[in-house]
Simulated assay, not measured.
Amino acid sequence: MKAALMYGPNDIRVELTKKPDCPEDGLILKIMAVGLCGSDIRNLTSDSRKGNYPFIYGHEIVGCVDEIGPKQTKYKVGQRLFLFPGTYCMECDNCISGHSENCENEHVAKLAGTGGFAQYIAVGGEKIHYGGIYEIPDHVSYEAASLGEPMTSVFACLENAKIGYPDTLVIIGAGPIGDFMASIAKTRGAKRIIMVDLNAHRLEMAKQFGVDEIIVSKLDNPQFAIDEVLRLTGGKGADKVISATPANATQAQSLHMVKKGGLVVFFGGVPKGSMTELDTNLIHYNNIWIKGHFGASYDQSKRAFALACSDDFPADKFITHILPLDEINHGIELTKTGEAIKVVLHPWDESFYP
Rank of each mutant, 00 (worst) to 15 (best):
residue 174 A to D: 11
residue 174 A to G: 15
residue 346 H to F: 03
residue 205 M to G: 11
residue 327 E to G: 12
residue 234 G to A: 09
residue 348 W to L: 13
residue 100 S to C: 05
residue 72 Q to T: 00
residue 235 G to Q: 07
residue 178 G to W: 00
residue 298 Y to S: 13
residue 59 H to I: 01
residue 66 D to L: 10
residue 234 G to L: 10
residue 261 G to C: 12
residue 108 V to Q: 04
residue 130 Y to A: 00
residue 195 M to I: 02
residue 104 E to Q: 13
residue 68 I to Q: 00
residue 47 D to Q: 07
residue 204 E to K: 11
residue 233 T to H: 10
residue 111 L to H: 11
residue 80 R to S: 02
residue 252 A to M: 07
residue 288 I to Y: 11
residue 56 I to P: 02
residue 174 A to Y: 02
residue 245 T to H: 05
residue 216 V to H: 03
residue 346 H to G: 01
residue 162 K to G: 02
residue 327 E to I: 04
residue 243 S to H: 03
residue 95 C to L: 05
residue 201 H to I: 12
residue 278 L to W: 00
residue 315 A to H: 15
residue 15 E to W: 08
residue 129 H to T: 01
residue 26 G to T: 00
residue 167 D to V: 02
residue 327 E to Y: 11
residue 322 I to R: 15
residue 277 E to D: 11
residue 208 Q to F: 02
residue 179 D to V: 09
residue 269 G to F: 15
residue 2 K to W: 06
residue 44 L to S: 00
residue 345 L to G: 09
residue 304 A to E: 01
residue 124 G to M: 06
residue 57 Y to I: 09
residue 234 G to P: 05
residue 220 D to R: 02
residue 300 Q to M: 04
residue 213 E to C: 04
residue 47 D to L: 07
residue 140 V to G: 06
residue 203 L to W: 03
residue 173 G to R: 06
residue 2 K to S: 01
residue 275 M to E: 15
residue 343 V to C: 03
residue 143 E to T: 03
residue 86 G to F: 05
residue 302 K to R: 14
residue 159 E to R: 14
residue 50 K to S: 12
residue 100 S to F: 07
residue 304 A to S: 11
residue 251 Q to H: 13
residue 316 D to S: 09
residue 146 S to R: 12
residue 64 C to E: 15
residue 40 D to G: 13
residue 277 E to I: 12
residue 304 A to T: 09
residue 290 I to H: 04
residue 156 A to M: 06
residue 225 A to D: 02
residue 136 I to V: 10
residue 344 V to F: 02
residue 252 A to G: 09
residue 169 L to T: 01
residue 29 L to P: 04
residue 77 V to Y: 01
residue 187 T to D: 14
residue 295 G to F: 05
residue 159 E to H: 14
